[in-house]
């Protein structure tokens, strides 16, 4: 692995954190201003009684909005834009939803098992109309488990970068180049965890999240395929084109 000085690692953590805060979509202060307001029962029922395809469209739009912030985050990671275009696309196609799921813990109220969605905090029951309760439950479970790690913004930022720079994605053309970037980011992750006086198992706990994330993303793709089989025209005409590019 590359030998990197502590000063360099500090700088790397700093730049990744800055990029993360610049592209995080919602600042913590903004969320605090919402006073963690949950949807009223009437509002929950309104979401629940939406036609399935409309709720899918709404969620696809929200995911697509979030993706655009992740793309901007990736562009600001040192070395990412120096990768070949094919690999930039491969890494974002495979990693953007993983980063969105990690970022979700910033918008998550563990006490009420709810996530910031469409202006207020929504429990899993808000998403019932999607018809994929198992996946929604798993997503909420994941958010809870991420929140319980109590990662700082720095740690979230570097972990997000680490996920994006996964050198084991299929179809990478310059795998060694990505590996080098990932190794440096992993060192930065170890560095920030040590600096924040985390216990030794912290890095391993984060590594164990990687397989959970991949499983969730696979299930999302499969669930979308199943929905598309039933509503091909809805997906074709009403889903955001970027969403279809990445997940279709």
């Amino acid at each position: 692995s590359p030998s990197v000085s502590t000063a360099e690692l500090d700088h790397l953590v700093q730049t990744i954190s800055k990029s993360h805060l610049e592209t995080c979509q919602y600042l913590t202060e903004e969320l605090q201003q919402t006073s963690w307001q949950s949807f009223l029962q009437a509002e929950v029922e309104s979401y629940q009684s939406k036609p399935r395809e409309l709720m899918w469209q709404l969620c696809a739009v929200k995911i697509t909005e979030a993706v655009q912030y992740v793309v901007e985050f990736a562009k600001r990671i040192d070395g990412f834009m120096e990768l070949c275009q094919n690999d930039q696309i491969v890494l974002l196609k495979a990693g953007s939803l993983e980063v969105i799921l990690v970022r979700m813990c910033r918008l998550f109220d563990s006490q009420n098992n709810s996530v910031y969605f469409d202006g207020k905090f929504a429990g899993p029951d808000v998403f019932r109309a999607l018809g994929c309760d198992d996946l929604i439950t798993s997503v909420f479970d994941f958010a809870n488990s991420m929140c319980s790690l109590r990662l700082s913004e720095d740690e979230l930022a570097v972990f997000s970068a680490f996920l994006l720079l996964s050198a084991d994605r299929s179809w990478l053309q310059e795998k060694l180049k990505v590996e080098k970037l990932q190794q440096k980011t992993q060192l930065a992750l170890q560095h920030v965890l040590q600096k924040n006086r985390r216990e030794d198992g912290a890095l391993n706990k984060l590594r164990s999240k990687v397989s959970a994330l991949r499983s969730l993303c696979t299930r999302h793709t499969e669930t979308l395929s199943a929905f598309r089989a039933v509503h091909p025209d809805v997906v074709r005409t009403h889903f955001p084109p970027l969403y279809k590019e990445l997940f279709g």
Binding site: V71, E72, R76, M81, N86, I89, L92, E245
Partner: peptide, 16 residues
Amino acid sequence: KDKHKILHQLLQNSTS
């Protein structure tokens, strides 16, 4: 690139 025109475009655009 051909299959990911929008993503490619976002990557090409200057920082927003």
